[in-house]
Design a protein around this nucleic acid. Structure first.
Lengths: 195, 195
DNA sequence: TCGTGATCTGAACGCATGTTCAGTTCAAGG
DNA sequence: CCTTGAACTGAACATGCGTTCAGATCACGA
């Protein structure tokens, strides 16, 4: 009772990832079973192991890919030279990117402790590279006299926390549109660093 | 083989709560078993049920108490009248209180989805009351012309996310002291709303 | 001195978990 | 038309889960 119609390998693989992402984001990694994921895909649990070595890899691959795509997208983003304009572009990028991928973002921030130590290390390094990109902007702005902040590392963490928080409350179709939200966050970020 | 020396009920109860708090914060509610908690307390799993009806109540009581104590502490905090000074006091209070209780804060923000629907409702109502306290300050500041922000609700969420983020990176004995951190966050919060 | 009851153990309950695997199905290549 | 092998099922494995409970222990009041 397998292989009903046509070949499914190139369909089931992505469907597994999509189902895992949806369920992990909604219920948490530890609270989701392989059988639940399989049911969402429309397959028995055993079949999942043709597409992932284990549950941990499912989580790790998801988080690593998310961080790598985030870094790639940032690298591809055109950033102006002037520190204030560069920070504004970063803030807008961050809000936009995170609003586009609420599930990945939620998982990336909530499931860090469910990674094995080595996998945690890898993801943490990627996250640090992203934070470094923002801190470089802040350091440049301080050096040029555009920003007034006592500590660039603290300001980096504060800004990222503030901007990422948008995913906690924003709902499409709500009172505020995405463009407005992007505007307001960018403005608050600029003022927060004294631009 | 029980009841070795003296009466333990008033000792085991608090120890259970402390162990649960520590383990939930470190590993996540869903990933911690009652047997692990019992081992941390130094007791068999069955004995825990003399002190809590079930695992869910352990989490719920912890979160409810945390939110109630947070609200009580805020109510007890002397807040100046002038909006800018009031916001500064709020920011300082928030940072200080959250740095004092890293485990409770972590749980309160990470384990919401592991609450039963009714319990979630209760905790969410308490959280909303806290957010309301901040938004009232912002509304007052906008009305008086002290703050310049397009949307007080968004600014509330942005500020809380920024301030709460301190628990993610701050480590006692690190480069920055608690007082400095409090200063800098308060300053950033004030500037973010255009004070 | 004895009985009581608070406190805890240790075993059990049914069920769910991640993972493995022998066997089944069937589209496609020769 | 037959063989092959990718794709999947369904059952099983050992282990762990939250929770219950009869019974053991022992400090303390009578």
């Amino acid at each position: 009772m397998a292989r009903k119609t046509g070949s499914h390998a190139d369909i089931t693989g992505p469907r597994l990832r999509a189902a895992a992402r949806k369920l992990f984001a909604r219920n948490g990694f530890a609270a989701v079973s392989m059988r639940q994921i399989a049911a969402e895909v429309g397959v028995q649990a055993g079949a999942l192991y043709l597409y992932t070595p284990d549950k941990q890899a499912l989580l790790f691959d998801m988080m690593r890919e998310h961080m790598e795509e985030l870094l790639a997208a940032l690298a591809a983003e055109p950033l102006p030279d002037a520190p204030a304009r560069r920070l504004e572009a970063f803030a807008r990028f961050h809000v936009r990117y995170h609003l586009d991928r609420p599930e990945e973002v939620f998982i990336a921030y909530m499931e860090l402790r469910n990674l094995s130590p080595e996998n945690f290390e890898t993801v943490e390094r990627l996250r640090h590279r992203y934070e470094e990109a923002l801190e470089r902007i802040l350091r440049d702005g301080v050096a040029s006299g555009d920003f007034r902040i006592p500590d660039t590392r603290l300001a980096t963490m504060a800004l990222i926390a503030m901007l990422t928080g948008v995913t906690q409350w924003f709902r499409a179709g709500g009172r505020l549109g995405r463009a407005e939200v992007e505007d307001i966050y960018a403005g608050m970020a600029l003022r927060a660093v004294g631009a």
